[in-house]
Structures are given as structure tokens and as C-alpha cells.
């Protein structure tokens, strides 16, 4: 569940112009945002649970080094959310532990 976002966009910047889905829920985002930035902007701070202990994690380095922001993007698991730019209608899901293989597989 998101909490109210504690981040705000700069007032003179471009407006949020597209919609993405996070865990099935609509999230407004700005073209040019990375997936991780868009989720933080919307107050989603827990973006996966770990395969080892199942605890929640969220974006940490935002520059592709830490692999904490792994999410499933349009059905592809374990993508680095901070390295992918949002597109209108993009479907993003939190990683829940280890990845599955493909649709229909465990």
C-alpha cells in the first residue's frame, strides 16, 4: 500500500502526463521518469520482497548498482526499475521473492 507521497514535483516542471499500473493500480507519472522514480513519487516505497527472507525492499541507489528496485515490467521479472523509463500503460508489479519462469509456471 502506498502512503501519501512525501515527495512533490517542482512546480515549474512538466506535468504528470501518463498513467502506469503498479500491482494493478493506476499511478500517474511523467514522461522521462524511470519506473523507480515514478513509484517513489506516488508514495510506493516497498517495490519487492526478497527471495531470501521475504522482507520488503525499495529503491536504494537509483543508478543501477544495487538491484534493490527489481520489479516485473510488462510480464518480464527482475528488471531494474531505476534503469527503465515509463511508458503510458506500462504494467509494473512488485517482485514477490524469487522470479517465476513464465505464465503458467510455478
Amino acid at each position: 500500500m502506498p502512503s501519501a507521497s512525501t515527495f512533490a514535483r517542482l512546480p515549474d516542471g512538466p506535468a504528470e502526463d501518463i498513467t502506469i499500473l503498479f500491482n494493478g493500480e493506476a499511478v500517474r507519472a511523467r514522461s522521462g521518469d524511470t519506473v523507480a522514480a515514478a513509484l517513489i513519487a506516488a508514495g510506493h516505497r516497498i517495490t519487492r520482497t526478497t527471495p531470501v527472507s521475504g522482507t520488503g525492499r525499495g529503491p536504494y541507489c537509483m543508478m543501477g548498482a544495487c538491484f534493490e528496485c527489481l520489479v516485473e515490467i510488462d510480464g518480464e521479472p527482475n528488471r531494474q526499475g531505476c534503469m527503465v523509463q515509463v511508458r503510458d500503460g506500462m504494467r509494473i508489479d512488485a517482485m514477490s521473492g524469487a522470479r517465476k519462469l513464465a505464465e503458467g509456471n510455478p
Binding site: G97, A98, R99, K100, L101
Partner: peptide, 21 residues
């Protein structure tokens, strides 16, 4: 490879899945 939820039942000389996935 990255961890995957268990899917391979039998180890083989070529490919096997370890306990942690």
C-alpha cells in the same frame, strides 16, 4: 542464473536447480 521458484525436479549433468532456487 538468478533465483527461480523451484521448477526442476531432477538434476542433470547439464542443468540443475539448487535449493535456494
Amino acid at each position: 542464473c538468478e533465483r527461480i521458484r523451484p521448477f526442476l525436479k531432477f538434476p542433470s549433468v547439464q542443468v540443475r536447480q539448487v535449493g535456494e532456487g
